[in-house]
Simulated scan of single mutants.
Amino acid sequence: MQTPAVRTPTGMFVPDLRHPVHSFGARVLDFDRQVALMAVINRTPDSFYDAGATFALDAAIEASLTAVAEGADWIDIGGAPFAPGSPVSAREEAARIVPVIAAVRKVSDVIISADTFLPAVADAALAAGANVINDTTGLRNPGLAAVVAAAGAHLVITHSLAEPRTVYPRPTYDDVARDVTEFLLRKVDEAVALGISEDRILLDPGHDLNKNTLHSLEITRRFSEIASLGFPTLAAVSNKDFIGETLNRPKRERTEGSLAAAVICILGGARVVRMHDVAASRAAINLTEAVFGWRQPAYLRHNMGSINEPAAP
């Protein structure tokens, strides 16, 4: 059952979260008053966006720490793409992400998620210091929930239809927002039954995952329907194909569209945004939070004194 929510005079949708405050190790997020910025780190040679730029261990660690310095609250580290392709073994996937998690955790209390759907990889990632398992398969493997529950970790449940790394041609929905919402509700019930407490569950409607551009645009427009389920909801919109097809832009020219999509989702109740350009995303989130009244401006000078001093350059 969806929880009540209100739309404020600013136009923002405020979901009535069942558990607004979440603790991720040393970090505490109050999703009633803030939006978390999740940075993307892929240790894959064929990643969707960066084509292997952070596949080398040193490059992945450096990119993670740079993201933290630029304002990321959260680092999402993946070692196997969702997209169709050859399977990556649990051993190989763990070898890719665990050293990065361990290295980042050694020097930072940033929230770390492992983007995986394999229980063995999740177990190794949590042991290395991850706080969250980001499962793009919608809890297809119940064993994953058992690992998360045993560790007392958080779980991101994402809507998708295909088996991992397989083709799912021409996906169709009766009503994409309704179908995604009903799927996520079923998966929440399943996760709770498998031992994960509600205060450790986040949801992701899965932009572009077994969805065409029209589906992803509709999910963006109707994001409040997913957010109204009462769980902190993640918008993974950065540089996705629905942005490229809408704007006719290649992957490297989708930053503006990605920022627009992220802000639209925040207005619809998103409380985590998964982005590649951390510095630009941090600025967009900070300004949005200031408009909502959740954050004070960095300084006040313009028209604040007896002389109309110009703002600092």
Score class of each variant (00 low, 15 high):
A312M: 14
R170E: 12
P232H: 03
T213S: 15
N239Q: 10
I75M: 09
V147F: 01
E62P: 01
V263R: 15
R221W: 15
F82C: 08
M275I: 01
V192G: 04
A262L: 12
S89N: 05
T246C: 07
R222Q: 12
V110Q: 09
F24A: 06
K187W: 10
S160C: 11
G268N: 11
A280K: 15
L65A: 12
E92S: 09
V147N: 04
P9Y: 00
P205G: 11
S224P: 07
R140G: 00
P99I: 07
G79D: 10
G79V: 12
E182R: 14
R252W: 15
S23E: 09
E163Q: 13
P232N: 06
D179K: 01
N131W: 02
N42M: 09
T8I: 07
A145M: 03
L202W: 06
T44I: 08
D30V: 00
I243M: 06
L287A: 07
T54K: 11
D277C: 09
D123F: 00
D50W: 07
A284H: 08
V180R: 00
E225Y: 04
T8D: 09
W294E: 11
D109V: 02
A36R: 02
A124G: 14
V188I: 14
D50H: 11
A145G: 00
P45Q: 05
Y299F: 13
V6D: 03
H276F: 07
V100K: 02
Y49N: 06
P81G: 02
G257K: 01
D109K: 03
V132Q: 13
I61G: 10
I264S: 12
P250F: 04
L57T: 05
L300G: 01
P20N: 02
M38K: 01
I307G: 03
V237K: 00
L214I: 13
K240Q: 03
A227F: 12
L229V: 14
D73A: 08
L17M: 01
S89I: 03
K106C: 11
A235Q: 06
Y299N: 11
K211W: 04
G244C: 11
A94R: 10
V6W: 06
